[in-house]
């Protein structure tokens, strides 16, 4: 009897379990988080293959000897730290990135204000025109700039001599060469700041300005006490993003000076290319490029902490 009872409820239980598992799976698939993960999966796979794997591979590579046959720990890093040229590269990268980001931010802020104050009808035209440098492929525009700065037949020098000025050694004197590569970077990157700042300006409620006007605030006071605080998060994120991209810049320096004269315009990426690809020392090249990582990570931590803090204050 007992056997009969047992044999009758076991299949029912199994059926219930199967139905519940099926229902559970359907519920799992219907969850928003599951759908989100599934939709992000292709992107996650791409990031894992093209970003995460190469990043870990380059860390591994940087700890091998020149012929990639022996593990040498931090040998490549300590070697780099003992080289004068490397320290010059560190200095040049910092000058290049910080000054370029500073000028891009200033120019972006000014132009965003100018455009924001234009009548709505004319704004679109100006926005489109000012975005052109950012839209042209960088390698192509760098080549155009190189022609303008050409050591022998510079178009800028031709204009200068027409007005009776002396020619400027744009790319052959270290100071001018540094100036030239920074100028091109600012020209290329300023529109990104412009568009981000313009979006931020548009999101500032008009009522705040109206209230300030009633309180008798002038334009500068409105800018300092309303616009800047409302834009601080966007400014921080834009600066962080631009700092990362500018530190890692390769095209402009490689095309215009290839690191010369006398290595004075090398940045991390071009120096890594010189050591890794041209000189055939891939581990040393990987070690050079990885030096950017701690610098940018520290900058990112500080900037994002500030953004979160302000976000909490606003929230």
């Amino acid at each position: 009897m007992a056997d009969t009872v047992h044999s009758s409820w076991v299949p029912r239980l199994q059926g219930a379990r199967a139905a519940s598992a099926k229902f559970g799976f359907q519920r799992f698939m219907r969850r928003r988080s599951t759908i989100a993960i599934l939709m992000c999966l292709p992107l996650i796979l791409i990031i894992v293959c093209l970003v995460v794997y190469p990043a870990f591979y380059s860390i591994w590579l940087s700890m091998l000897n020149k012929s990639q046959t022996r593990f040498i720990g931090l040998g490549n890093f300590s070697y780099l730290l003992s080289r004068d040229v490397f320290w010059m590269v560190v200095q040049q990268s910092a000058i290049f990135a910080i000054s370029a980001v500073f000028f891009k931010a200033i120019i972006g802020l000014i132009t965003a204000h100018l455009i924001n104050n234009l009548p709505t009808k004319g704004q679109r035209k100006w926005r489109g025109m000012l975005l052109v440098p950012w839209v042209i492929p960088l390698a192509l525009s760098s080549l155009g700039w190189w022609w303008l700065f050409d050591p022998t037949h510079s178009a800028f020098n031709w204009v200068l001599t027409q007005f009776g000025f002396n020619e400027i050694p744009w790319l052959s004197a270290p100071g001018w060469a540094r100036f030239s590569v920074i100028l091109v970077n600012v020209w290329y990157g300023a529109p990104f700041f412009l568009i981000m700042y313009l979006a931020a300006l548009k999101s500032v409620p008009d009522q705040l300005y109206e209230a300030a006007s009633i309180d008798g605030a002038n334009a500068w006071q409105k800018f300092v006490h309303i616009t800047l605080p409302m834009m601080r998060n966007i400014i921080s994120i834009t600066v962080l993003f631009s700092l990362i991209v500018t530190f890692a810049n390769f095209d402009i320096v490689q095309i215009m000076t290839a690191g010369g004269p006398r290595n004075t315009t090398h940045v991390f990426a071009t120096y890594a290319f010189l050591l890794g690809i041209r000189s055939g020392d891939l581990p040393l090249g990987a070690a050079t490029s990885l030096f950017m990582f701690p610098i940018l990570a520290i900058a990112a931590i500080f900037i994002l902490r500030g953004v979160r803090k302000r976000g909490r204050e606003i929230g």
């Binding site: 050591p151 022998t152 050694p169 744009w170 052959s172 004197a173 010369g260 004269p261 006398r262």
Partner: peptide, 9 residues
């Protein structure tokens, strides 16, 4: 030499 030789490719 012309001064620009330091920047020649």
């Amino acid at each position: 030499n012309p001064p620009e030789v330091y920047a020649w490719d």
